[in-house]
């Protein structure tokens, strides 16, 4: 069996920049994701939660995290499960049977940039128009929006670390923006 991983190339080739004391940017490539669409009222929702041992939170912008998965609630019937693969898709399909669920493997659709360090919030605020104040966007929040005119999902995970999910075609543009926005902080 050929190990296919050797043939993969991520949009930013694992780029990193900066230091944790100011601002640190790093591509964390090859995260796997499934996008799930299911109505809140559907019995299938509970079956998915049971089979993957996760929660699909009801409120848009809220998240669930365990050691295997990070679940981001992107819409009232729309979740992105980071860490899930097509094997999990099979498990879900088996458990939900004929009940209607949309499951799409979008692993290569986006790449993932981690933004951390003392000035992480300041750097993001140069392009992200939504509120990042911690009282309004506490740890464990996510939001989908526009950063540097690019569609981005921001997940605010462990304190001080932002996870940016960006569509692969925009990744280099976003990286260029972030490194430019970081310039002044890196010089500190």
């Amino acid at each position: 069996m050929v190990n296919l991983k050797q043939f993969r190339e991520s949009p930013l080739k694992g780029s990193k920049l900066g230091s944790k004391s100011t601002i640190y940017l790093q591509e964390k490539p090859f995260a796997t994701t499934l996008e799930i669409r299911v109505k809140q009222t559907s019995g299938a929702k509970g079956k998915i939660e049971k089979v993957l041992k996760i929660k699909l939170p009801t409120k848009v912008g809220s998240t669930f995290r365990n050691k295997d998965f990070t679940v981001l609630t992107l819409g009232p019937d729309w979740w992105m499960i980071v860490g899930a693969t097509t094997n999990h898709e099979k498990l879900i399909r088996k458990s939900t049977g004929s009940q209607f669920v949309s499951i799409v493997d979008t692993s290569a659709q986006r790449t993932f940039i981690e933004v951390s360090g003392k000035y992480a919030q300041a750097v993001l605020e140069h392009g992200w128009e939504n509120d990042l104040n911690v009282q309004n966007f506490p740890g464990g929040s996510c939001a989908q929006g526009i950063l540097a005119r690019t569609p981005v999902i921001i997940y605010y995970g462990p304190i001080g670390v932002y996870h940016l999910y960006v569509r692969a075609s925009f990744a280099q543009h976003l990286w260029n923006f972030l490194t430019d926005a970081a310039t002044e902080y890196l010089a500190k």
Binding site: E9, P11, H126, A148, R149, S169, Q172, A181
Partner: peptide
């Protein structure tokens, strides 16, 4: 900073 290459997103394929 919306100047030059940052003035509009440039989308590229793999």
């Amino acid at each position: 900073r919306d100047l030059g290459i940052l003035s509009d997103p440039i989308r590229t394929t793999s």
